[in-house]
Design a protein around this nucleic acid. Structure first.
Length: 598
DNA sequence: CAAATAACCG
């Protein structure tokens, strides 16, 4: 698929008297091709042309060549750079920016140091570039040193530097430092607001982000497209559809409706707030659509369980001549694994590198593991992880572990669990899965060992929490607690629902209850008041008959709640849209859109 | 050439 550049026509007519003169005149250099350069090969072709055009020592051209270097070709960029005798600050910045986008961003720090050694002073863009590199490398120590240097050289309050400082600290997990820096700004600069709002989003604090947005509005500052991106992302995190719709209106009224990225964020927001129809609407209304917009729509179909739609959209995208990127493939692979299309998924995975020039990364491998494991091809998944060209992350083993849980393969599950232990990065959920597996297999000694291990390693079980938006207010319920003002009523409603469903054949599935030392009744009780059941019951009480219930849960939905929700959708004639940790379940007429494959 | 959406498992 890669395009090859052809040189401008430069062969002069052969038998002309002025042939000698024509040879003297170097061929013109095709500057317009520079920005279209996407691979090392194209870059080398351009460099060759530059030499033919006798421009190889021309600093602006070398700078442009370095700027055009794809992130994977930084060695080449470095060689070009080293040919320049006295690089100026712009050139140092260019090289530094190249590294900050590569997979070795920390190299920017060395470039910056070399610049200072060479006696070249930084300009307004040197620190932002350096700090961006520290942020993407999550190098907080280097980031702090860069901050120190910025203070020393008088750049710390620079309007270009301050927002980057804020986002660097946030990216390095130091939201408090970011907040403190933001507080020192006079709050008159939208860009600083943007970086602080984005910092909150990146640290999963959507409510704080929205509060800052309201503050910005109250001050009469004009939000930018970037503000809208972060605000929409906050709505997506919260799953707050009503608020999201309001922001959509705001976007339209304030002239952001034609921004491709804002529309892409709208697609994502609607998809994550459970309204696939609205996402489709935004996508359909977009005038021009880039790779990201198509990807967002593919992911939207995928998380709603519409695997075939996601795939046909991908094919349509290819027909339109839009180049897929790594994220497009994550969407496609995700769609396949969540709808059981194993062979299709593997097929797409194999075309990534050759046909589309997209190098698979660890997340793509993760999708393949999920693809195989979810479909029950557990041994293959295990071998696949072991044969990877890179060190697997705990996530890959966790994917396998969770699938082993679903398919009841205790022995393989234990092996996967051990790999997570070796990597010393266990989550509470890992212990829950393996312990439940051992429990349902009657391996009580193992269960006790696992629980002991869990407390030794200080892992904690994340409490289940579900929320439901009723009349523009988000109500939160935790499993079994009584904190919500209407908790009593919700509990009683659950009792009522359970009784009614039992009469139509519902049997509580207590086989996977975590606690071993419980009697059957206690187990049923702990299951009965799972947070999603409370939220659904609350919705049944507080909304008129027929209203769709939209519930967001912080963990994966459990099997018992899943089957109960199906029955509620039938017995109470309600649609229920339940957002899991990472996907949606649409319950209607006793069935779920996931087809019980999740 | 500052701020930046989309992202595998739980």
């Amino acid at each position: 698929m890669s395009t090859t550049f052809t040189a401008s026509p430069l062969s002069p007519a052969k038998s002309r008297p002025n042939e000698a003169i024509a040879k003297e005149t170097p061929p013109p250099f095709p500057f317009s091709l520079l920005t279209k350069c996407t691979s090392l090969r194209q870059l080398q072709q351009l460099h060759a042309l530059a030499i033919k055009s006798r421009l190889q020592h021309h600093p602006p051209l070398l700078t442009k060549l370095i700027t055009s270097c794809p992130p994977s070709a930084m060695d080449y960029a470095r060689r070009l750079f080293d040919q320049i005798p006295d690089p100026d600050v712009v050139l140092f910045n260019t090289l530094s920016r190249g590294y900050s986008r590569s997979d070795d961003p920390i190299q920017s720090v060395a470039v910056f140091a070399r610049m200072l050694d060479a006696g070249v002073g930084p300009d307004d863009y040197s620190f932002p570039t350096l700090l961006k590199a520290c942020a993407s490398a999550k190098a907080s120590e280097e980031g702090r040193q860069a901050h120190g240097a910025a203070v020393k050289l008088g750049f710390a309050d620079n309007i270009y530097v301050l927002p980057t400082l804020i986002s660097m600290y946030a990216e390095c997990g130091e939201l408090n430092v970011a907040r403190a820096l933001f507080a020192r700004t006079d709050g008159r600069c939208v860009i600083s607001y943007n970086s602080m709002i984005t910092a909150c989003v990146r640290s999963s604090r959507p409510s704080e982000a929205l509060a800052l947005f309201r503050e910005l509005q109250a001050k009469g500052l004009e939000p930018t497209d970037v503000t809208m991106l972060s605000v929409l992302s906050s709505c997506a995190l919260l799953g707050a559809l009503e608020l999201g719709k309001w922001i959509h209106e705001y976007v339209r009224k304030n002239g952001f409706g034609s921004f491709v990225k804002v529309n892409t964020a709208l697609i994502d927001m609607y998809a994550k707030c459970g309204s696939l129809e609205d996402a489709i609407g935004v996508f359909g209304d977009m005038g021009s659509k880039d790779t990201q917009a198509w990807s967002a729509m593919i992911v939207a179909y995928a998380i709603h369980g519409h695997g075939s739609k996601a795939i046909s959209l991908f094919e349509e995208m290819l027909k339109e001549g839009i180049k897929p990127d790594g994220i497009t493939f994550l969407g496609v692979l995700y769609a396949c694994s969540h709808s059981g299309k194993v062979e299709e998924g593997l097929g797409y995975f194999r075309t990534m590198r050759g046909r589309h020039g997209v190098i698979p990364g660890i997340k793509h491998y993760g999708c393949v593991v999920d693809l195989l494991a979810r479909a029950g091809r557990l041994d293959e998944a295990f071998e696949f992880i072991d044969g990877l060209p890179m060190q697997p992350t705990p996530i890959l083993w966790r994917t396998l572990l969770s699938a082993c849980g679903g398919h009841g393969d205790v022995d393989l599950g234990k092996r996967a669990f051990e790999r997570i232990l070796e990597l010393d990065d266990t989550h509470g959920g890992d212990y829950v899965i393996i312990s439940n597996m051992c429990a349902s297999d009657g391996r009580w000694e193992d269960v006790n060992r696992i629980r002991q291990l869990m407390s030794e390693r200080g892992a904690v079980k994340v409490p289940g929490c579900s929320s439901i938006e009723v009349a523009n207010t988000v109500h939160e319920f935790f499993s079994g607690d009584g904190k919500h003002p209407q908790s009593e009523a919700a509990h009683r409603m659950v009792d009522e629902v359970v009784e009614r469903l039992k009469s139509v054949g519902y049997v509580p599935d207590t086989s996977r209850v975590f606690h071993v030392d419980m009697g059957e009744e206690e187990k049923e009780a702990s299951l009965r008041y799972h947070s999603e059941k409370l939220a659904i019951a609350f919705g049944l009480i507080n909304t008129p008959p027929g209203t769709t219930l939209r519930v967001v849960k912080n963990l994966r939905v459990c099997g018992d709640c899943h089957s109960m929700a199906k029955m509620v959708s039938m017995a109470f004639d309600r649609e229920i849209v339940l957002r899991d940790l990472n996907r949606f379940h649409h319950f209607k007429d006793g069935l779920c859109s996931c087809g019980d494959f999740w």
